[in-house]
Amino acid sequence: MALNTPQITPTKKITVRAIGEELPRGDYQRCPQCDMLFSLPEINSHQSAYCPRCQAKIRDGRDWSLTRLAAMAFTMLLLMPFAWGEPLLHIWLLGIRIDANVMQGIWQMTKQGDAITGSMVFFCVIGAPLILVTSIAYLWFGNRLGMNLRPVLLMLERLKEWVMLDIYLVGIGVASIKVQDYAHIQAGVGLFSFVALVILTTVTLSHLNVEELWERFYPQRPATRRDEKLRVCLGCHFTGYPDQRGRCPRCHIPLRLRRRHSLQKCWAALLASIVLLLPANLLPISIIYLNGGRQEDTILSGIMSLASSNIAVAGIVFIASILVPFTKVIVMFTLLLSIHFKCQQGLRTRILLLRMVTWIGRWSMLDLFVISLTMSLINRDQILAFTMGPAAFYFGAAVILTILAVEWLDSRLLWDAHESGNARFDD
C-alpha cells in the first residue's frame, strides 16, 4: 500500500549564491595573561575582544583620537594649579581661619623630617597626573615632529594605576569627618577644581587605549598563520617573532617567553612588605597634641575612634588600611606557593584573586592621604596640633611594595603550573 505524501511548494523562490571570495581570516594573537594562541577576527570600533580561555580583555573598544586626548590633557593642565594650590577646605580653629590644600599637606610631611613619605604622596597625587598630561601632550606634538614615541607609550600603561586623584578625593571626605570634632569646616574653591580634575582624569584614563596608539604610530604586520613560536610582548602586546637582537619589532624591548626574574622580584617585594606591615600596624601612625597632652593612634585605634562619629567612614578606612593590605599579602603568598608547588586545582579562583588584588591594591594609600591633609588643617603649635607617627613611612612603603609585587608577577606562570593543553579552566 503506497502512502500519498503531499508536496510542499515554497511560496518564495530560494536563491543560492556561491561564495565568490575567501572568507576573511583572523590574525593570530597570544593572550598576555595566559599565553593562549588564538585567531582574533577583525574588530570594529566600539567592540571589545576577550581571550577565549581566561576571559582577559585583549582589545578595548573604547578609543579616543589623539586630538581629543590632547584637549583633555590641556584642560587638566589648566585645572591643576587651582586643584593643588587653592584651598580645598576652610576650618575655623580657636577663632582663626585655616586653609588646607594639597601642596601644603605634602610640605608639612616633608617639613617634619619625613621627606620619603611626603614624596610618596607627591608622586601619586601630583607627579603621576602631571606625567600623564605631559605624556599625552608629548605624543600629540611628537607625532607631528617625527619624534620617538616608544618610551612614552611604554610608560603610559604602567602609569595608570599610580594616578590616585580619586583616592585622594575620598581622603578629603575622611579628613573632614575627623577634623569636624575640633573645628567648623567649609569647602574651599580649590575643592571644585579638584573634583573637576578627578572627573576629567577618570574619563581620560578610561578612554586612553595605549594598544590602539601603538597600532597608529607603529603598525606591524600581524601573524596570519598559526605558529607556536609566536611570542607576545608584555610592553606593547604585539604578537610576532623577535628581531635579530631578540627584541620586539614594535617597542624594541627584549621579547622573552616569560617575564625575567618574575618570581624572585615578586618574592622579594612580598617578604619586604610583610616585614614592614608589622611596625606599620604596631607603631603610632598619627599623633595629636591637645592642650599640651599627647595622644597617639595606631591604624586600628584611629579607626575605632573614627567609628564613634561615623561608622560608615570608619568601615571604608578599615577596608583600605587593614583589610586590603593583608588580603593582598595572603593572596600573593598563596599564588606564589601554588606556582612553586605546581598546583593544578582552583586555577579559576587564583586568576580571579590576582585580578582582584590588581584592582584594589592602590586604595591602601588612602590613610597616607588623610594624614597629609589633616596635617595641613590642624597645626596650632602646642594648643592643638596633628602630626604623623613613625608607622606612616612603614605603611606607605608596604603598600608600594605590594603594588610592585602584583605588577611583577607574570600571570602566565600560573598556567605553566597548571596542566598543559587546557582550553578551559575551572575549579
Rank of each mutant, 00 (worst) to 15 (best):
R412L: 00
A128P: 03
G292C: 04
G142L: 06
M155R: 01
C343P: 14
N422E: 10
S65R: 09
N291G: 13
N143T: 14
G105I: 03
W84C: 11
E157D: 07
K57P: 13
G146L: 03
W214E: 01
R250M: 09
G396F: 04
Q344H: 12
R30Y: 04
I400W: 04
L191C: 09
N44A: 08
I116H: 12
A175I: 02
K178S: 01
D181K: 02
C124G: 05
F74E: 03
I96V: 09
L377N: 01
K13P: 11
I274P: 02
I58C: 08
E296Q: 05
R231Y: 05
F386L: 04
T117M: 02
Q104G: 07
Q7A: 15
T298R: 07
W92P: 01
L353F: 13
Y168S: 09
S286L: 02
L354A: 12
P222L: 07
A187C: 07
R294F: 02
I287S: 05
C266K: 02
D297R: 03
Q112K: 05
E215D: 07
F425C: 14
M388F: 03
Y138V: 05
G188E: 06
L409T: 06
I330G: 13
R225C: 12
L145Y: 08
V406E: 07
V331G: 12
V102Q: 14
P219H: 12
V179T: 12
G421N: 14
W162C: 02
R258Q: 03
A417D: 09
T201W: 02
R97Q: 04
F74L: 12
R380C: 02
M375K: 07
G235S: 02
C248N: 00
L79Q: 12
T67K: 11
R158Q: 15
Q295Y: 10
K178N: 15
R355H: 14
T9N: 13
I172P: 01
I303C: 11
I116W: 01
L352S: 12
M76C: 03
P325M: 02
V313C: 11
T327A: 10
A314M: 10
V102E: 02
G173R: 01
T349C: 13
N422D: 12
V125F: 09
L384K: 01
V198C: 14
D427A: 14
I98L: 06
N4I: 15
A397V: 03
C251Q: 00
R216E: 09
L413E: 10
Y218H: 04
L69Y: 15
F217N: 13
T201I: 07
W408C: 05
S411Q: 12
V198W: 15
H207S: 15
K111Y: 09
Q345P: 13
F141H: 00
G396P: 03
T224F: 07
G315N: 14
V324C: 10
S135V: 01
S364T: 07
N143A: 15
D416Y: 11
R348V: 12
I172T: 12
G146T: 10
M304D: 15
